[in-house]
Structures are given as C-alpha cells and as structure tokens.
Design a protein around this nucleic acid. Structure first.
Lengths: 253, 253
DNA sequence: AGTCATACTTCCATTCTGCGGAAGTTCACC
DNA sequence: GGTGAACTTCCGCAGAATGGAAGTATGACT
C-alpha cells in the first residue's frame, strides 16, 4: 500500500534499507508470502528473498510453519519498549469498547505521532455495513475528524502539519480542495463545539466525529466514531455526537 | 545493548539493512543523538547520518525539536498493527501491580514471541536493592524461569527453541552448561509443581519464579517475580512462590 | 509414478551503491 | 570573533548489493 520510494521526485536514501523497510511494513500488517511481499515492494524475488532473510536474522520477522512472514520478537520488544502510550492504552481500550457497545458503531482511539494520526485502539461495530479501523491505521493529521481534533485541541494549527513544504492546499478523498486557512478557521469552531466532524475526508465512504480525551491540560488523544455514509441522517449524527461527548468526558475523568 | 551483527560466526545479511535496524532499535528504546546512535551501532558518523536520514524519510524515525531521534509514525503504526497482545495487557497490568504491592518485589508479565520471551508489562519493587525489568526486555526462551515456564506450559519442549541448528547445549549466565535433555526433563517437574524456578540463569545476580496465566486451555503468558540474589533464603523463596501461585491462579480466573 | 506448476533459494558476473575520511556547515558558548 | 561540538555533504574507490538464470523443494493433477 504505502509506497515509500515513489518514482517521481525520488528523494535519495539508502536503497536497500528503503526496500527492506517497505517489506517490513507490508509483512507486519499481515503475514505474507515472499512472492506477495516482493510484488508489494516492487523488488525482484531474489532481492526480496535476501532482504527478508536479513530481517529474519535480525529478529524483526520470523516465518511460521507455513513459511509465511510474521512479526518477530524484536518488533514485539520494540513495541513494548518504546510504547509512549502504554499508560493511555488501558483507558483507551475501555473508552472504545464502552462506546462501541452503546452505539454499535466502530470506535477508535487516535494519537498523534509525527505528522500523522495513528489508531492505537479500536472496537468494531457488529453491523453488516461497517467502517473498519484497526490499530496501526495511519493517515495525515490534516484529514479527517480525528486528525483535525488532534490539531485543534492541542492548538497546533499554526505548526507544521506535514504538508509538502511550500504547499498550503490539500485534497480530501472526495476531491474537495481545502487550504491551511480553512483548516485553521475550522479549528476555532471545533474547539467551540468540543468535537470535530468530517464527511468523506479521509475516506470517501464514511463520516466521523472525534472528541478530545485529556488528563488535566494534557491532550492524550481523541476518541472517534467512524460510520459508513449509509447511516448519515442528521438525527443519527446528533445522537452519535451526544454519546461521544459523554464518553470522551468520562474518559477524561 | 543488543548487537545484532556480532563479529564471530557472522551470518551474512545485507549490511546496510542490518546497520539500519540496529540504529532503529537503539533509537526506539530511548531517544538519542546521532553520535550516541552511531557509537551504539558501531558505524561511522557519516554512515549513521545517511542511514538515519533514510529511516526518517521512511517515517520510521523523526527528530524532535532538539534533533533527538524518536520513533516516527510508520514505526508506531507498524508496532500497533502487529500487536497480538493488546487484549491481555490490561489483565497483565493488574496482575503485575497487585502482586508487586503484596511482595514489594519486581513483577513482570512475559509472553512468547518467536523463540524469545518478551516482557510486556511490569511493576517495579520499591526496595533499595531491586531487579529491574522493563517492558520490551527480551531474551531466549530457554533461559530463566519465565522462558522455561512458557515452554513447559505450552508443551513446547520438543519444538525448536531458537538454539543454533545442530546445537543442543547452552550456557546459563553463571556459566553452567545445560542441554536440551536437561531442559526437557525440567519441564515435567515445572508442570508438576505448577511453576518454574531459576537462579543465576538469565542474569547472574538474580533468581526468579514464574507461573502460567491461562484462559481455558490457552496459555496467555506467565507471571514472574524477579528478585536479587541478596534476598534468597529458602523461607523467603517459599513465601514468594506461594504468593505467585495465588496471583497467577487469580489472573487465570 | 511421472509431469507440470508454483514457490522459493543460491549462484555469479556486473555495475552501481553505499562507504568513510575529509571538508563544509551550523550553532552554542566563552 | 574565536573555539569546539554536533552534524551533514562531498567524492573517489572498494566491494556490496543486484537480478537473471540455474537449482531445489513441494505439491497438485493425470
């Protein structure tokens, strides 16, 4: 999915490392065979074989009995050693499943990492038509309710948000063009309302609402409800917003 | 700490990738400056600079305002996407802190990942002389109480345990030589007793006891108490074992 | 059993990539 | 403005990584 070495305007880096990281990303998201991984990363089979063997030697990956590449012990160790959110995750887990139980919609907890919003916990709706959102889902901060909430409630709208330098425009998934100025204006509204809303921004087919979870003055992350466009009447949105507001407040204690 | 490219019997791999992964591990365990990281990985400054720039380009690392390297969004996403233990962490956290409060000894929860045991949760003793054990601590499964318990209670003593192929001997930290046969014999004892004990195995200066935490037939992980050798009289060990037995049973519900 | 297909690994000559010393840059502190 | 520490960029060379091809393993289908 995420191509790190796109051909145009190719930023230089150490090629074998970039390729290895691409393979690692692909493998960690779902166990895969060599052939699939080589295809995903766009490298020859022999190269993929060599690089994957290296990742395996370093314990970043291992192979299960079927030969599928799966996350290895060093990756696990790194996760728990570097976990900046271990304290929050318990809280997030509870908040997420309580609210899911109440609404039967997919609920996720996002934190900011770099210029991205990353899902660190989620609970999935049981409905037949649902928006899924697994831990590890990642996207730019400036798109979608969760990202905008992260910006607004940490007053970060005047900082750098990861847009290509020199740019101040970006496109939503539905194709609408927005500017940094729009975003900044929206932040004021979001803070006033206490939550962020987005429709067809980070995915064309869903809308979302997100509200801050804080401890004192510190923003820990945001709680978000993500819903397919198939359920988007005003009344329902209002209901979801009300439930979210309460849940986020409860999680903030 | 963890040198992946030890000089003797060096297994071949793609050098730049190995170096980059070493840098990544070091950086993820604690934010560091270029110079420190280069030293830790044993590479020249220019090489470290180039490799770290590559890791940064790929969003695996980023630099905070002081220029320190910290985990980047792609790493965060990857780690959360590959986390198989989010479900038991709450349970582990509670078990660990209850038992710590009872004994005032460092208590940790270990799971098996690959051929390693990895600490995913811990609570530290408040005593002046204590064994520390942070989440992310990793070691071979065949050494130490926690590892042996993981093997014994999942009946894995006949599977491959990560020893170099062809070998069936290994050394404990105190220098004692043990064989796979010893280990297999010990597993029966461990199962009979319901817990594993080790002294000077994974660290020369401490002993540990570990008991299984299960849900039905499934072994989730092990709860372990790790204690400095300075407190190692029979009576005290027995007391710790009794408390651990109860705590592990409670956590297993 | 025999044949074919698929999935992966190893080999090896070629070339281009990554290497590290040195020079250049930035910044903080005296 | 001078000194030093921390980091980045430059550049010629060595040799590391590359990918096509050949080799191996496995399994399915006849």
């Amino acid at each position: 999915m995420t191509e790190l070495d796109d051909e145009p305007t190719e930023q230089r880096g150490v090629r074998s490392v970039i390729r290895a990281l691409n393979l690692l990303s692909a493998a960690a998201r779902g166990s895969r065979t060599l052939t699939e991984l080589a295809g995903a990363a766009g490298v020859s089979l022999s190269t993929a074989s060599r690089l994957l063997a290296t990742l395996r030697m370093a314990d970043f990956l291992e192979q299960d009995k079927d030969g599928q590449f799966v996350p290895g012990p060093e990756l696990t160790a790194l996760l728990y050693a570097s976990d900046q959110w271990s304290g929050i995750r318990k809280l997030a887990g509870e908040a997420v499943s309580n609210l899911r139980d109440e609404l039967d919609e997919t609920v996720a907890f996002f934190v900011r990492s770099g210029h991205d919003r990353v899902c660190i916990e989620s609970a999935e709706s049981g409905r037949l038509v649902r928006r899924v959102c697994h831990p590890g889902e990642r996207g730019p901060v400036y798109l979608g309710a969760a990202g905008k909430a992260l910006i607004a409630f940490s007053n970060a709208e005047h900082g750098y948000l990861g847009l290509p330098p020199g740019t101040d425009e970006f496109k939503t998934e539905s194709g609408a063009v927005r500017t940094l100025a729009d975003l900044r204006a929206e932040c004021a509204v979001i803070r006033a309302r206490g939550m962020a809303y987005s429709g067809r921004e980070s995915t064309e087919e869903s809308w979302a609402v997100a509200a801050p979870v804080s401890r004192g003055d510190l923003l820990l992350g945001v709680l978000a409800v993500v819903v397919p466009m198939t359920r988007s009447d005003e009344l329902y949105i209002a209901k979801v917003q009300a439930a979210l507001r309460q849940a986020a407040a409860a999680a903030s204690r």
